[in-house]
Computed example of a mutant assay.
Amino acid sequence: MTNPLADLSAAGVSIWLDDLSRQRIMSGNLASLIDEKHVVGVTSNPSIFQAALADADHYAEQLDDLAGRGASVEDAVREITTDDVRHACDIFRGVYSSTDQKDGLVSLEVDPRSAHDTEKTVVEALDLWKTVDRPNLMIKIPATPEGLPAITRVLAEGVSVNVTLIFSVERYRAVIDAFLAGMEQARANGHDVSTIASVASFFVSRVDSEVDKRLDEIGTDAALALRGTAAIANARLAYQAWQDAFGNERWATLKGAGAKVQRPLWASTGVKNKAYPDTLYVTELAAPDTVNTMPEATLDAFADHGELHGDAVSGTADAAGEVFAALASVGIDVSDVFRVIEDEGVEKFEKAWTELLETLGEQLTRRSPEQS
């Protein structure tokens, strides 16, 4: 019998889980995914932690302790999320070692309310790194204009970075420049660059969601025929940009010093339109030296009926460019698409973080000694 996840891994795709919770850690589920589903990393975000903490039962003991100590809501969120990530790092430490530090990585995002504040992002990123205190941690920093210099400065301190909320190839090129500058500074600062990991999280399904909505509004046959084409074409153009950037002399110098390449990571790979195959953004974006971080439903779907057709990305840039030319010809302003979904991405995580604080505040109040 074939094993689609094993085949995907053998094709050079690192399979990461886009989810984390205390329940997964305590039940042994996270460890079993390593053994049974070829999962070699984990990503988290504010929405994931909001969902995890909505189930307070698995956090009851820690919540009681925090309430008894009179911890603030902000301190409680920090302690709970960093504990979960630290434990996940420990679970993946064997993978981290066996893959020569390429995988076995666990991502923790800075407060999304700092997405447009460079200084706050840098300070929090360094604080999270010290608090978790695990070599296989990655700090997630959004690729906003204000996030770009923060990425460089955090890498320069020897901290591994997962750059998140990348939607356009233009912004992706800026992310690569920020990575290269950060690694050059890290080397100049005396850090062992071979220990610094980085991925660039290029979001997929949200592109189709926004573009398809606009195509439906246009409503012509030519427009409707382009539904479901934008996200894959966009990611394939990003992969070409990655190949170009990491094939030059600037990268060769860093590689010679032991630096590891910043891999493209396909994020938001759960299919939102049920008319599309549920493994679409896995099959059509399989390529060497990439990461695909999947929600568990997508992971299970690919394990059950996923198919591979070899390297689906290399050499596809010209065809992907034709897709974008066709989108422009029917009236799609792709620059506006990327602006809208970036703004929405930041707002979504800010909202999730705010709701997380509110939920946790209610939990602490109910458990406080004054309520006894």
Rank of each mutant, 00 (worst) to 15 (best):
P112W: 00
P112S: 04
R113N: 15
R113A: 14
R113C: 09
A115V: 11
A115R: 14
D117C: 07
E119M: 11
E119L: 12
V122K: 06
V123I: 13
V123S: 08
V123P: 00
E124D: 05
E124M: 10
E124S: 07
A125M: 11
A125W: 00
L126W: 00
D127M: 10
D127N: 11
D127K: 11
L128Y: 05
L128M: 08
W129A: 12
W129Y: 02
W129G: 00
W129I: 00
W129N: 12
W129H: 08
K130R: 13
K130C: 00
V132D: 04
V132H: 09
V132S: 09
D133Q: 01
P135F: 03
P135N: 03
N136C: 11
N136D: 12
L137I: 01
K140G: 00
K140L: 02
K140Q: 03
I141H: 02
I141W: 01
P142G: 08
P142D: 13
P142M: 10
A143P: 14
A143K: 07
T144F: 11
P145Y: 12
E146K: 05
E146G: 03
L148K: 08
L148A: 04
A150P: 05
A150Y: 02
I151R: 09
T152P: 06
T152Q: 15
R153A: 13
